[in-house]
Amino acid sequence: MSRAGKNTLYRILLIGPALLAITIFMIVPLGLMAYISFRGRDYSGGVVWDQFTAEAYVRLFFERELDGTLALNFNYMAIILRSVWLSFLTMVISLAVGLPVAMFMATRDRKWKAVLVFMVTLPFWTNLLVRNYAWILLLRDHGTINSALLWLGIISEPLPLLHNAFAVAVGLTYSFLPFMVLPIYASLEKIDLKLVEASFDLYANRWQTIKRIILPLAYPGIVAGCVLVFVPALGAYITPELLGGGKTLMIGNLIGFQFGAARNWPFGAALGLFLLMLVLTSLWLYARRYRGEMERSP
């Protein structure tokens, strides 16, 4: 066999299995999902394969009355908008919290940097469900926070902290903060502290230095962090399920619901496809923007 042929054979033998696994059990199912989103609904939980219909997409905006007429329905749109809004809020809060932390980490010496990176990374590897559950303990009517506030006499009745958008935002921020801190840290860490000194030397005070030198240089990390927080927040399932208490649903829960009690697979598939597109669009915008940034400072 020729050398080139041998190379190709090795390539197929080595890369093939993993590629095949992901293709068959992820890419093909995603394609199937797109297909099913245009099929008819089987009320017992399944698909009418030979019926083409855009009913699932119509359902996003309209409600079919008993007599078959369509009426505008904002319920699903509200959930989608809430998902986007909560994810955006999560992203902004994470940025506000994460930026100073990343900056603190980046200005430590080597030994402390390693320790701090480890401490930031650690919670990511612990169970997401358990971490969200911990917030139930804190936010409940008789939870740690309310108990503490009552004991201190600051409030006389428990605050309604759980089962609302606030709780979901807290939980989402809690879940995805490391994704904001780490990329910003990585880009800040590369900035030579001499640049900051040069800025001071050229009469820029601390605020001006942050605005003119540090933020522009950390920009790629900030954008990466925002994407890495926004995308998983948008598709969150556990946090709204546990902390939203069935009242503050997000897209993820709506999708899950179609495969449980609602038994509407085509609609679930359509929502899944919609979420997938939303995510891929965010990633594509990011890739385009980031590449633009790379060209500006090669």
Binding site: K194, A198, S199, Y203, A204
Partner: peptide
């Protein structure tokens, strides 16, 4: 006085030029 209030300027060993600015932007920064 902090460095940004001292009428003294520095040429750094490895220059510490601002990589996100042009030549002219670097010069006019101060």
């Amino acid at each position: 006085k902090p460095p940004y209030q001292r009428p003294v300027n520095t040429v750094f060993q490895n220059y510490a030029l601002f990589p996100h600015m042009t030549v002219a932007e670097n010069i006019s920064f101060g």
